[in-house]
C-alpha cells in the first residue's frame, strides 16, 4: 500500500476515533455545561502540522463527521466553520507562529474559541437563530471554555495527528508530500500533477519541521527532495 494511502487512512481513522469519543465520553466531561470539541482540535492540529491545505481538508472532513451527530443545525455548517479555521491556522502557522512547547496549546485556545464563534455567526447568517438566542455573553463564555479545554489536551493530540499525517518509516518529507499530492489529485484534479506535487512538498516541509524539530533549512531541503520522490 502506498504511503499516501496509509497516511490518509490513519488520518481518517483518527477522525473517526475522535468522533466516537466526542459522541460518547466527552459529553460526560462537561464543565459549566460545556465540553471540549475533539474534532475542532484535530482540525487545528492538522493545520499546525500540515499547513493550510491539509488544515482545510481535515477541517471539512471533521466538521462533516461532527454534523452527522447534530440535530438542530444543518449538515455542513460545522464543515464550513472548521475548514475556514483549518485554513486560517495553517496560513498563520507558516508565516507568524514560532516553534515551541506553547505553540499547540496557545493555538488551540485561540483557534478553538474562534472556531466556535465562527460556527455560531455562520449559523446566525443562514437563519439558525437558536444559536444566538442564549445571548452574546453566553456564546463567548461557551467559546472560551471550549478553547481552554481544547488547549489543555492540545499537546498530546497534536503529537498523534503529527504521527498520523507523517511517515512512520523513511523520511517524513516523502510521506507528507505524497499525502499532499493524493489530496491534490482527489480534490483539485484540474490543477494538474505538477502543481499538486509542488503543494505536496510544501505541506511536507511543515510536517518535517514539526516532527523532526531540526533547524528549518535542512528540513526544507529534505522535504523538497522528498516531494520529488513522492510524485
Amino acid at each position: 500500500m502506498s504511503p499516501a494511502v496509509l497516511a490518509r487512512l490513519r488520518l481518517g481513522g483518527l477522525l473517526v476515533l475522535a468522533l466516537v469519543l466526542q459522541t460518547t465520553v466527552v459529553p460526560d466531561l462537561r464543565i459549566l455545561g460545556v465540553c471540549a470539541d475533539l474534532l475542532l482540535l484535530c482540525t487545528v492540529c492538522a493545520a499546525l502540522v500540515g499547513g493550510p491545505e491539509l488544515g482545510g481538508l481535515v477541517g471539512f472532513a471533521a466538521g462533516l463527521l461532527a454534523d452527522l451527530f447534530l440535530t438542530t443545525t444543518p449538515l455542513g455548517l460545522s464543515a464550513l466553520a472548521f475548514s475556514v479555521v483549518g485554513y486560517a491556522v495553517g496560513s498563520v502557522r507558516r508565516t507568524v507562529l514560532q516553534e515551541g512547547w506553547l505553540l499547540a496549546p496557545a493555538t488551540a485556545l485561540v483557534a478553538s474559541t474562534a472556531g466556535v464563534i465562527i460556527f455560531v455567526l455562520a449559523g446566525a447568517m443562514i437563519g439558525q437563530s437558536q444559536l444566538t438566542r442564549v445571548g452574546p455573553v453566553d456564546i463567548v463564555k461557551t467559546a472560551l471554555l471550549v478553547g481552554v479545554m481544547n488547549a489543555v489536551i492540545a499537546a498530546p493530540v497534536c503529537r498523534v495527528v503529527g504521527w498520523a499525517a507523517s511517515a512512520s518509516q523513511g523520511s517524513p518529507g516523502s510521506m507528507g508530500s505524497a499525502l499532499g499530492s493524493a489530496f491534490g489529485s482527489a480534490f483539485g484534479g484540474s490543477l494538474g500533477s505538477h502543481r499538486a506535487g509542488q503543494a505536496g512538498s510544501e505541506i511536507s516541509s511543515t510536517a518535517a519541521r514539526h516532527s523532526s524539530r531540526l533547524a528549518s533549512r535542512p528540513a526544507h531541503i529534505r522535504a523538497g527532495r522528498g516531494g520529488g520522490r513522492g510524485r
Binding site: 493550510p52 462533516l64 455542513g76 455548517l77 464543515a79 464550513l80 485554513y87 483539485g188 509542488q198
Partner: peptide, 30 residues
C-alpha cells in the same frame, strides 16, 4: 510564478470546500 502558485492552491481548495459546505447546508435546510 512559483510564489503565486504556492498561495493560490490552498486558497482554491478552501473556496471549493466552503462552496461544498454551503451547498450541503442549503440542501439540508431545504
Amino acid at each position: 510564478m512559483a510564489a503565486y502558485r504556492r498561495s493560490a492552491r490552498p486558497r482554491f481548495i478552501l473556496l471549493l470546500l466552503v462552496l461544498t459546505a454551503i451547498t450541503l447546508v442549503t440542501v439540508d435546510t431545504r
